[in-house]
Structure formats: structure tokens, C-alpha cells
Design a protein around this nucleic acid. Structure first.
Length: 354
DNA sequence: AAGTTCTTATTAC
DNA sequence: CTAACGGTAATAAGAACTT
């Protein structure tokens, strides 16, 4: 992880499907086209707990965004089409799309079902060539799956992602190395990966200024960024200047695996609690399969949204289901015996290694 | 005092 | 009702606990 050494020498391409889940649903049901379409929790069930997973551009006109509480999206657009998440379908489509992308290079980082980075440094002479590959990928995805995506090309992951963001929907954009630092100047600091709402506010606080841009953030000295953000400070300092040394990481091994569940209504009922907890534990164990385990974490969110975790670790090895379940129950009891609050959410997670 | 483990905060899709 | 709110996973910081 050295600064500017690798910079200018890499060619990174980012592919991101346009409003993925909702676009697939439009394809499956063309009569939904042109109407606001929201994929996510059921707004009528369980007092509309849950959030918007993805929505199409018509829905966005009403102010709906992914991650928004489904109840709020319903208020914004009660006439919209609300569909449940059909994950098996999206997974199938995703694999089909990755088959196309994988033809271009082995250096692929799969970010999620609908997003990937490709390191094309060894495959092309310049960014223009990468753009051609991007166009080819777009055409192939359109032909094979009848779906659109957007593509960004840049000298690193961050610039490729920003280019892609600007290209949306159904576009392609290249940001040349020499333009990198300039094109981000006028944008909100939130375009910098790793800076979300909280960190943006910290920066605003520090600069005593609202709506801080990257240009504003660049005025902060490296030492001060390190004071505010610790080891991330240095990384941000460079990112504000268009420099991002993070490698396109091929397959990263999973370090933990877990399940969570939010009750339709907050509950005290031990029968319901145990029933759900058993499900979470055994489902997680099933998914982990024969991997070795070195710890368990139990999460409990109460009616007031306060969230606590309790974890324990032990020598790395393969444990019997019953043992893991018992360890989980004991942690759960720790969390809930000292409170009178109703439970909103339960979670169970296994820590893996190697 | 150093090293490990636990808990919370934050981000991202 | 001002506070709306999933599921999954990673990472970092600081607290808490051991040795």
C-alpha cells in the first residue's frame, strides 16, 4: 500500500447494473415499465418494517431511494408497485452476467450481485481500449439478459466507480488520469468511498462549513485528518486527491457468517424468541458447512433500537451443532436477562478463519 | 505493560 | 411524534480483560 507508485499505471473498470433488482422485475413483467416500482419489504405487513432494496427511476422521482424505510416510500408513493425481493432469481441473473465479465480478465473483484471491478492493466494499452471492453460487456449483457448496466474506467477503483456513477444509467465514461483530481473537486465529500453521513458531518464540524466538497476537504492537513480519522485519515487524504491504492482484490475469504431476523412486532415471548433463535443458529451452521469456527456473536436489538452484542471465542475447530447452539443461548441469556425491553431483532454469527 | 478479546460505530451494497 | 429502519459483512477504535 504505497501512494502514487502504482498510480497512473493501472487501468480499472467498474461495472454496475442499473437499478438491478427492479430492472429484472421490469424485464419479467413489462407491464410494470414506466410505473414506479419498488423492490423490498411489504409495506402492508408488520407495520411496514424493512426497507427499500432497489427502486426504478420512476420511483426515484418521488424521492424514493434504496435503504429508505419501506413505510416512508409507501407514503411518498402509495400508487407504486411494491414487489418482494426474489433473491434466487437475482442470483441466477448475476451468475449469468459474471460469466460474461469473467471472459475479459481473471482479475475481478465481485463487490455484490450487481457490481464488479476489473483490473485491465495487463489486458490493455490505455484507457480507450478499456472503454471498448466496457462497451463490449454492455452489449453482451444487453443481448444475453436484456438488462442495462453502466461502466466506468479510471486509474484506480475509486475513479472507476465515480466514472460509473456519472455514466448512469446505461452509460459508459472514462476519467483520464490527468483529470482525476480535478473532476472530483466540486463533488460532495460523500463520493469518497469510506465517507458516509457521519464522517461527512465530522468534516463539516471541523471546517465549520456545510455541504463540504472534496475541494474543501483537501484543505485539511494530513496530520489533522489522522487526528480525526485515525489510520483512515491518510487514506482519505490521498483519496481527496484522486489517489486510491487499493488493489482489485480477487476472491476474499469470508471471515464470518451469520443471520439476523427482525420480528414483525417487538416481543417478550420466550417461545417466539427461542424458535427464531434456533432457526438463526441452525441456518447459519448449515451455510457454514464443514468450516472451522472460532467464535460466536449474538446480537439483540431492543424496542428502543438499542443494539447489543455478546460474543465469545474458543480454539479454532469444528464444533458440534448442539455445542454452538448452547454457546449461543448462553450469550443470548446474558443479553436479555438484564432488561425488561421487548426484542426487535435477533442475530447469530459464526467467526471463521483460514 | 503488553497482548488478546469484546463491544460499538461506521460504512457499503 | 419530532426518531421512519433490513440483512449481511468488513474494518477500526477503544474498552475490558488476561497474563
Amino acid at each position: 500500500m504505497k501512494n502514487e507508485d502504482l498510480e497512473e499505471k493501472r487501468v480499472v473498470l467498474h461495472v454496475d447494473m442499473d437499478y438491478f433488482f427492479a430492472q429484472i422485475e421490469e424485464r419479467e413483467n413489462p407491464r410494470f415499465r414506466g410505473k414506479p416500482l419498488i423492490v423490498g419489504a411489504d409495506p402492508k405487513k408488520g407495520a411496514g418494517r424493512g426497507v427499500v432494496s432497489t427502486c426504478n427511476y420512476e420511483a426515484r422521482k418521488y424521492g424514493i431511494k434504496s435503504g429508505m424505510p419501506i413505510s416512508r416510500s409507501y407514503k411518498l408513493c402509495p400508487e407504486g408497485v411494491f414487489l418482494p425481493v426474489n433473491m434466487p432469481l437475482y442470483k441466477r441473473v448475476s451468475s449469468s452476467i459474471f460469466q460474461i465479465i469473467e471472459k475479459e480478465t481473471e482479475k475481478i473483484e465481485r463487490v455484490s450481485l450487481d457490481e464488479a471491478y476489473l483490473d485491465l492493466t495487463k489486458k490493455v494499452k490505455n484507457l480507450k481500449e478499456a472503454e471498448s471492453i466496457g462497451k463490449k460487456i454492455k452489449e453482451k449483457i444487453k443481448r444475453k439478459e436484456d438488462l442495462t448496466c453502466s461502466v466506468g474506467v479510471g486509474k484506480n477503483k475509486m475513479m472507476a466507480k465515480i466514472a460509473c456513477e456519472e455514466a448512469k444509467p446505461d452509460g459508459i465514461k472514462v476519467i483520464f488520469p490527468k483529470d482525476s483530481s480535478k473532476v472530483i473537486l466540486k463533488k460532495s465529500v460523500e463520493i469518497i468511498p469510506g465517507i458516509g453521513i457521519k464522517r461527512k458531518k465530522e468534516i463539516e464540524n471541523y471546517l465549520k462549513k456545510k455541504d463540504v466538497t472534496v475541494a474543501d476537504a483537501k484543505k485539511i492537513k494530513k496530520e489533522n485528518l489522522e487526528k480525526i480519522f485515525g489510520k483512515l485519515g491518510k487514506e482519505f487524504y490521498w483519496k481527496f486527491r484522486g489517489v486510491d491504492c487499493e488493489k482489485v482484490g480477487e476472491k476474499k475469504e469470508t471471515k464470518s457468517k451469520g443471520k439476523e431476523y427482525t420480528f414483525q412486532k417487538d416481543t417478550y415471548d420466550p417461545k417466539k424468541i427461542i424458535k427464531i433463535f434456533r432457526y438463526l443458529v441452525f441456518q447459519t451452521i448449515k451455510e457454514v458447512g464443514k468450516q472451522k469456527v472460532k467464535g460466536v456473536v449474538v446480537t439483540c436489538r431492543f424496542e428502543d433500537f438499542e443494539t447489543h452484542t455478546k460474543q465469545t471465542s474458543f480454539p479454532l475447530k469444528f464444533y458440534k451443532k448442539k455445542v454452538l447452539y448452547k454457546k449461543g443461548v448462553s450469550l443470548l441469556l446474558h443479553l436479555i436477562t438484564k432488561t425488561k425491553k421487548r426484542i426487535r431483532l435477533l442475530g447469530f454469527r459464526l467467526i471463521l478463519e483460514r
